[in-house]
């Protein structure tokens, strides 16, 4: 990697100060698993002058619950989130999502803050400098999007605008279903951003000098059946082709709360609100789940090579609502309470 100045932040405030000082020429490093791709492949027009290490900030890796709100420090590692008894018990979809990321070695260092803030995986955007790159594009602000006419099998089927790269974060999908918020610190103090509002087609909602400090996950009303399903070509390592988080609360045989979040289909995480509304007040069965799958496609406008994602969205929503695993044999009976589907295959 090209040289850079390496700074160890002792506090979040110090990190923010340093961001201010470098005026956009510094990058934060938490787990590093996304950052080093940028530094090694040099796919952006500018190379950072400084790297600000956040791991030197003590005490930012907590997982704690108080007054019904789960608080996750931005430096909490994905391996710890996936293994936490608290999260597995109460926020199973999040544990599944954290476990679904990358590989064991990367989950041992990758943080949830980094997972939420990682850059997109568009193959044009990330094309390495040393192979006759980089490729100019809309996201970099220096050219048109080549994916629109090129290979867009992994791109957005909804809400793309100028840029059609999708949000690659798995944890964001689960967190959006939980209506989680990001606690963000900047020179002007703290603010909160809902995960579902965090991403837009050309980037995220962070200002230049802001840092994600914490994730707040409000309590769910009732006991929800939780599901996180991630469709990939192979396991593990892959980023999602489509992912779905579904939280379904059933009382007296009817659904009283449904939250369905879609990942890897749009620049941000999509909440399938039409499907959610449809399910409320209905019995959860194969027909209603399938109908929710159809409704989840509201507003979808696939590109030439990614219409196949629509089928996968429909299927994952249906299976997620029914609490079935990703590789399900049948779709017959929802099969009673399923804590959070997607068991490992043998």
């Amino acid at each position: 990697m090209k040289p850079f100045l390496h700074l160890n932040a002792q506090t979040v405030a110090q990190a923010v100060k340093s961001l201010v000082k470098f005026e956009g020429r510094a990058r934060l490093n938490a787990g590093g698993t996304d950052l080093f791709g940028l530094l090694k492949d040099e796919f952006l027009p500018e190379y950072p002058e400084a790297i600000i290490n956040l791991k030197s900030v003590a005490g930012l890796n907590y997982l704690k619950q108080s007054k019904g709100i789960l608080r996750i420090g931005a430096l909490a590692k994905l391996c710890d989130i996936a293994e936490s008894p608290l999260i597995k018990e109460r926020y199973g979809a999040l544990a599944e999502a954290a476990h679904a990321v990358a590989s064991p070695q990367l989950r041992n260092v990758a943080t949830i803050g980094g997972n939420l803030c990682q850059d997109v995986r568009c193959c044009y955007y990330r094309y390495p400098r040393h192979l006759g790159g980089p490729i100019s594009c809309a996201r970099k602000g220096n050219g048109p999007c080549l994916a629109v006419r090129g290979d867009n099998r992994n791109h957005a089927i909804m809400e793309g605008r100028k840029c059609f790269a999708v949000c690659p974060s798995d944890t964001a999908v689960a967190l959006a279903a939980f209506d989680a918020r990001l606690v963000v610190v900047g020179p002007a103090g703290e603010r909160r951003i809902a995960v579902r509002d965090f991403y837009h087609p050309l980037g995220n909602a962070l200002e230049r000098d802001e840092i994600v400090k914490e994730i707040e996950v409000p309590a769910l009303a009732g006991r929800a059946r939780q599901s996180f399903l991630k469709f990939t070509l192979r396991r593990p390592i892959d980023f999602a082709v489509v992912s779905v988080a579904a939280l379904i609360v059933v009382e007296n045989g009817v659904c009283c709360e449904a939250r369905i979040a879609l990942g890897a289909v749009a620049p941000g995480v999509i909440r399938a609100t039409a499907a959610e509304e449809y399910l409320k007040g209905r019995a959860i069965d194969v027909e209603s789940a399938a109908q929710a799958g159809e409704l989840a496609l509201a507003g979808a406008r696939p590109l030439p090579k990614n219409a196949y994602k629509l089928e996968i969205v429909k299927t994952l929503v249906k299976r997620g609502v029914l609490g079935l695993p990703l590789e399900t044999a049948g779709e017959g009976d929802a099969g009673g309470p399923c804590p959070h589907g997607n068991p490992e295959r043998g």
Binding site: R121, L131, G133
Partner: peptide, 20 residues
């Protein structure tokens, strides 16, 4: 292969798939 420019778009070991 990008059908228009000829770039190999998955020249890395995440996007080139291999069995785990």
């Amino acid at each position: 292969l990008d059908p228009i420019s000829g770039h190999i778009l998955n020249a890395n070991m995440i996007d080139y798939k291999w069995r785990t």
